[in-house]
């Protein structure tokens, strides 16, 4: 099985891969380092790598001066809320399609996927007007609804591919063992599907957290999540790089960590099961 390789080749690959990996990671690393610098040293030329006066002041300022926590909790509310709502709608649907397929199941799945490919800008105007009339602009409910709808096809698809892997035999065995439909779902299907549901949840939180078309266009202040909050730093005046970095780190860190843990599921979720 193992390819015979010399240690020298292995070291060569190691150096090359680490080099490229660090270059790709550099912007994030640089943001990380900058977030601990005093503003003056953040824009210093030549750049300071490690020899600066480490400080947590930026994090404190970002929190105290700009409603960071409000935007953070907006992000949490909209990402988690939309994901849970999505799962609530998607689990029964995926269950039905995986275990009681009909001739049309495939068409329904494909159609659901096709709604995901509708460019947001094509429905921006009506959604904006509807939301304006329903007073959903800049509200949590509005953002949750939009995020749920745009991610629902992905949630259903991911769950469907996971449910598909649960052998029908086992559900039938439960039925033969006297389990009612409810008992079958509670005692057999759900425990077996937990890993799949968990990774679906994770991927969806990531996608919802980073969504930056609807959140930018449908929120202003009250419900604005971190995507919109960070965008407000783009105003040209002043170079507050250290603070920008601190705010950025806080915005991306939770998702980065979640993303690292869900690498494998990510591939499957984002390719609709076409690559596993």
């Amino acid at each position: 099985m193992a390819r015979a390789i010399s240690t020298r080749r292995k070291i060569g690959f190691t150096i090359l891969a680490w080099g490229i990996g660090l270059v790709i990671f550099f912007p994030i690393l640089w943001t990380f380092l900058t977030s601990f610098k005093p503003e003056g040293q953040a824009i210093a030329i030549p750049p300071r790598f490690f020899d600066f006066d480490w400080t947590l002041a930026n994090y404190e300022t970002v929190q105290s001066r700009s409603n960071y926590f409000r935007h953070f909790s907006n992000s949490v509310i909209s990402a988690v809320g939309s994901t849970l709502l999505g799962l609530l709608i998607a689990i029964p649907a995926a269950w039905a399609m995986a275990f009681s397929p009909t001739k049309r199941t495939k068409d329904v799945l494909m159609w659901m996927l096709s709604t995901k490919m509708l460019p947001a800008v094509g429905v921006l105007v009506p959604i904006y007007l509807i939301f304006r009339d329903l007073r959903l602009l800049d509200t949590h409910l509005g953002i949750i609804v939009v995020l749920t709808m745009i991610n629902l096809p992905i949630i259903i698809w991911m769950l469907f591919t996971y449910f598909k892997e649960i052998p029908v035999d086992i559900l039938e065995a439960a039925r033969m063992d006297g389990a009612s439909l409810r008992q079958e779902v509670v005692h057999v299907l759900t425990p077996m599907a937990v890993p799949g549901i968990a990774s679906t949840l994770l991927l969806n939180i990531i996608l919802a957290w980073n969504e930056a078309f609807w959140t930018l266009n449908l929120t202003t202040t009250n419900a604005a999540p971190l995507t919109a909050f960070i965008a407000s730093y783009s105003s040209p005046e002043g170079l507050f790089w250290a603070k920008l970095s601190a705010a950025s780190m806080m915005a991306i860190a939770p998702i980065l960590i979640m993303g690292w843990f869900s690498q494998k599921q990510l591939v499957r979720g984002l390719t609709f099961g076409a690559v596993k």
Binding site: I24, F25, I28, I206, N210, S234, S245, I252, I255, L256
Partner: peptide, 17 residues
């Protein structure tokens, strides 16, 4: 992990950085 990290950075952050 290093290589896939940028994918998780929200678009507004990466653009600003």
């Amino acid at each position: 992990l290093l290589v896939i990290a940028p994918f998780f950075v929200m678009p507004t952050v990466s653009a600003l950085v």
